[in-house]
Simulated assay, not measured.
Amino acid sequence: MRTVRAVTVAPGVPDSLRLVDDWPEPAPEEGAILVEALAVGICGTDLEIIAGHYGEAPPGQERLVIGHEALGRVLEDPTGSLEPGDLVAGVVRHPDPVPCPNCAVDEWDMCRNGRYTEHGIKGLPGFARERWRVQPKFAVGLDPVLAPVGMLLEPASVVAKAWDHIERIGNRAEWNPQTVLITGAGPIGLLAALLGTQRGLTVHVLDRNTTGPKPDLVRALGATYHTAPVNELDFKPDVLVECTGAPVVVLDAMCKVGPNGIVCLTGVSSGGRTINFDAGALNRELVLENNVVFGSVNANRRHWDQAAEALARADQSWLNSLITRRVPMSDFAMAYEHTGEDIKVMLDLTS
């Protein structure tokens, strides 16, 4: 049996990250399209899985191949949906088998019963292996120009969903947004800012970093960079996309938008912290200003396609600048070391 190298963990066991040299070749049951892996992006979810906080191996297996921000090249596709040599990414979440009402109509990002599966996270092998397979329904073709940065498609799909839902909510009434504030200049925040500028909005990004690449990346988009606390800013945005998950920032964000404003929460808080906060004042503001606060996570196929289009239209040198480290597979452990200075780390699966 042919084998491949794969980066794996034992879910629930802290620091069990291993590079396995003889992982089984992906079985045809995983999908008709066979893909040569090029790279995976690393995010906080990977680090939490490595720390043992969560993660679930496929049924009957003890270890989980991690990696959900995929980029690969098609080796064979007997279905004809893609051609050999095409760049491809795999959709992370798959619908539950029941299915729930949302999964039944391919809105698996809005699964209601929690029985979905996710590559590299929950019940499905991830993409940090030299070869993987995917069903045509979950294979997203990429423009060749995205070869150096295609692993950004997964976080971009999360942002595309956020903007899709922002616009659906905004259209409850006559809506002509002008200004958006993004809190957090990590990969999600910067990609949210990119999609904001592509919509012709005046974009502001707030982050604590005063040095490093983040301020310049924001300004390169034509956006304005801020380091002051949210509640000290001298304007009220029409839209606020919160990407930090920091409790104080989340609460300040909900209080900051203008009339008919929309706050989209994409950052996940860790919990366990109590803050003295005037909930009554927040409620009064939300009601009297017709404001909306909602959470957004994951993405369905429509959002992946929207993200692929947005990345292909972006300045490719700017996207390249988001990748602050490219680590060969032979040095895999270095890719998962949190330095606090990176924006996006990429694991090169071809070396």
Rank of each mutant, 00 (worst) to 15 (best):
R2A: 12
A10L: 14
P11L: 11
V13M: 14
S16G: 11
L19A: 09
E29C: 08
G31S: 10
I33L: 05
L34P: 05
E36Y: 00
E36G: 03
A37I: 05
V40D: 01
I42N: 06
D46C: 08
D46L: 09
E48G: 01
E48C: 08
I50C: 11
G52M: 11
A57T: 00
P58V: 03
G60A: 07
E69T: 03
L75Y: 02
D77Q: 04
P78R: 10
S81N: 04
D86M: 07
L87H: 07
A89C: 05
V92G: 01
D96M: 08
P97L: 06
C100L: 10
C100Q: 08
V105P: 12
E107H: 15
C111M: 13
H119Q: 07
I121V: 15
G123V: 08
L124E: 00
E130F: 03
R133C: 08
Q135M: 08
Q135L: 06
K137V: 03
A139K: 03
A139H: 07
D143T: 05
D143S: 14
P144N: 04
L152E: 02
A160H: 02
D164F: 07
D164P: 07
R168I: 08
I169E: 13
P177Y: 13
L181D: 08
P187T: 10
I188Y: 09
A192Y: 10
A193C: 06
A193V: 01
L194F: 04
L194W: 03
G196D: 06
R199I: 02
R208T: 09
R208Y: 05
T211D: 14
P213S: 01
L217M: 04
V218W: 02
T224Q: 13
T224W: 01
T227V: 13
P237V: 02
P237H: 03
V239K: 15
C243G: 07
V248R: 08
V248A: 07
A253K: 05
C255S: 14
K256M: 12
C264N: 11
C264F: 01
T266E: 12
G267W: 04
G267N: 10
V268Y: 08
G272V: 02
T274V: 15
I275Y: 15
D278Q: 11
A279C: 11
A279T: 11
G280P: 14
N283Y: 14
V287C: 14
V287I: 15
N291Q: 15
N298D: 12
R301V: 14
R302H: 13
H303P: 05
D305F: 07
A307Q: 02
A308E: 00
A312S: 15
S321P: 11
S330A: 13
F332D: 07
M334S: 14
H338V: 08
T339D: 10
E341N: 09
D342F: 02
L347Q: 01
D348I: 11
D348K: 13
D348Q: 12
D348N: 15
S351H: 15
S351D: 13
S351V: 06
